[in-house]
Amino acid sequence: MTKVVQVAVAILQKTNGDFLLASRPQGKGWAGWWEFPGGKIEQGEAPEHALARELQEELGVTPTAVQPWITRRYDYPATHDASAKTVLLHFFFVTAWQGEVMPLEGQSLSWQSPQHVQVSPVLPANAPIMHALALPTIYAISNIAEMGKPQFMRALAHALDQGLQLIQIREKQLTRDALSALSQEILALCAPYQAKVMINTDIAHARQLGAHGVHLTSRDLMQLQQRPAHLLVSASCHNPLELAHAAALGLDFVVLSPVLATLSHPDAPPIGWETFAHWIQHYALPVYALGGMTSQHLSKALQGGARGIAMQRGAWLAD
């Protein structure tokens, strides 16, 4: 069996969301390729300790605010300058540090925006993380059934002005024709903001409308054997089995619920923050917390390892 190399990886991130990439120096495998800073976890070493050690050795900084995030496995093929190997990458957000970032190993450094990565080539194992970092922290779900269309469209326009970048259209009470007309209106409204629109459940309909992606119910997820191509694909999950299936399919992100009690499903017992954090520890995909969420819960979700929060009612509350 191939030995798995454990690696601690740092996403050094500024308050504006920009993150640091480093080029691998000459003399190392995959020289010239760009990656997140970090390095091998030694035998018996905790990933957090390896992260701090590597950042000190590579960049001369000491992390002071660290949050565990995604864990991903990647099988590197053999190249002319490196042998084949399998790595298990433990990604951490590092949002504060002591010291000035310096290239202590002769590497090039570059701060990049998640939406516009301008350096290349990026190490294959790091590429999916770029897509995950481009996901916003708020995932809004439409709520026309309760609000009515005029009020909802006003709330959506306001949210887009405030920076909303990801919305799911979920209006099961509508006929297909009515849903098509509504979706076209929402897509047109979102286009100038470059906000991404997901269609609930119907893959063919999402493609027909030219939507950015599809959001699958947990039932749809468990029946799916292959991820749909050329779409953003997310899914609702409620237990570790569904989370595992979503990861095996390589979806773009998942929503885990209900974290707290919710009006939509009053009979569903909430899993709570402790279980939420436990289930997504070392998970491979970005996760949004759903169920009773308001904007005040965002920091709690991030502390638990989430990418952000998903909201149906809370997303449309007036400031």
Rank of each mutant, 00 (worst) to 15 (best):
A8K: 02
G32P: 12
N16M: 05
L302C: 02
V61K: 04
A206T: 05
L166P: 05
L89K: 13
K40H: 07
L89W: 08
R307S: 04
P124Q: 14
T275D: 09
Q281S: 07
A134W: 09
H245G: 05
P47L: 00
T217D: 12
Q26G: 15
T275K: 10
G106P: 10
D202A: 04
L174I: 07
V197G: 00
G148P: 06
E105Q: 15
E171D: 09
L182R: 06
A82Y: 12
A82V: 11
A284V: 06
M198F: 12
L224K: 01
Q98R: 14
A206W: 02
V117C: 15
H158W: 12
L256G: 00
W316L: 03
P228F: 02
S234D: 05
I41K: 00
P103C: 07
H282D: 13
C237S: 00
R72W: 07
A310S: 11
A10Y: 07
N143V: 00
D267H: 13
P269N: 03
L135E: 09
G291I: 03
N126G: 15
V94Y: 05
A247S: 10
V214N: 01
R24W: 12
I309E: 00
W69Q: 01
M198T: 05
L251W: 01
N143E: 07
G148D: 08
P103M: 06
P128K: 10
H205C: 08
